[in-house]
């Protein structure tokens, strides 16, 4: 059994079924790319894995290391090593970024890292990911540019050290250098203990983070799967062929 096993997953939001039976397997140590046109259901899948309240699982299962995630609250999933880098990270006014990160790290690791040690770790990660130290004074995502938000998502991953990282369009809106920094950040986390599900529209990031497999989603279903070459093919020809086969 794979570490992540998604079986015949059906998800609805607002009374509309958005995923109509999705199957995905991913082992730790592997990287899987999920591509597909706008509105095909990629983020829906990502949210369903993380436990977003607006998305209701109406059928099938998401098992992570043998545990059914659908029965767990989002924080319980995070404690099992699940992390979602969101496509649109939200600003949370007034909640200090430092306080938030420390609370999260302590909760996930069930320990109480001394403030100084935590700050040292945080500063290190910030400089590696090119996040400005002055952001420590801000609230969560407050006033961050699109690209800064994406970096901050990866910074959180670096602190929380997940075993399953779902990266929902983390590459969108990043300039060339930022893309490289972020990809390097992800690669530093990679290893036999991390499974990566990377959602993207571009092959650019896949040159840095090489997928073992590529799945293509269309209208709430996986319609094609293959090796890294599938991504190149899509970039060249778009999704037109899929539409005719689907």
């Amino acid at each position: 059994m794979a570490d992540l096993e998604i079986r015949d997953l059906k998800v609805e939001a607002d009374g509309t079924e958005l995923l109509h039976g999705v199957d995905i397997e991913l082992d730790k140590g592997k990287t899987l790319a999920l591509m597909g046109p706008n509105g095909s259901g990629k983020s829906t899948l990502a949210y369903a894995i993380a436990g977003h309240p607006a998305y209701t699982v109406t059928g099938g299962s998401v098992r992570w290391k043998g545990t059914e995630l659908n029965d767990l609250t989002p924080d319980e999933r995070a404690k099992l090593g699940v992390f979602l880098a969101m496509q649109y990270p939200v600003e949370v006014p007034g909640v200090s970024l430092t306080n938030f990160l420390r609370t999260a790290v302590n909760a996930v690791n069930e320990e109480d890292v001394p403030v100084r040690e935590f700050m040292t770790r945080l500063r290190e990660q910030m400089s590696e990911l090119g996040v400005n130290q002055s952001f420590l004074q801000r609230s969560i995502n407050e006033g961050f540019s699109g690209g800064e938000k994406k970096r901050f998502e990866i910074l959180q991953a670096a602190l929380l050290r997940p075993e399953l990282a779902v990266l929902d369009e983390t590459d969108s809106g990043l300039d060339v250098d930022a893309l490289k920094t972020v990809a390097e950040g992800v690669n530093r986390l990679s290893g036999p203990d991390l499974g990566v599900l990377i959602i993207t529209h571009y092959t650019r990031i896949l040159r840095y983070i090489e997928p073992d497999e590529v799945h293509v989603m269309f209208e709430g279903r996986i319609v094609a799967s293959g090796g890294p070459e599938l991504a190149d093919e899509l970039e060249e020809h778009g999704y037109e062929n899929l539409k005719t086969t689907a």
């Binding site: 924080d75 999933r77 969101m86 007034g94 909640v95 200090s96 609230s139």
Partner: peptide
């Protein structure tokens, strides 16, 4: 806001506390 904090492993009640305190921070 709540989901964002919870998805980082922060339990719901603690997340609510942070958000309410954050509301007054301004």
């Amino acid at each position: 806001h709540l989901f964002y904090l919870e998805s980082r492993g922060i339990p719901r009640d603690e997340a609510l506390r942070l958000i309410v305190a954050g509301f007054f921070r301004e």
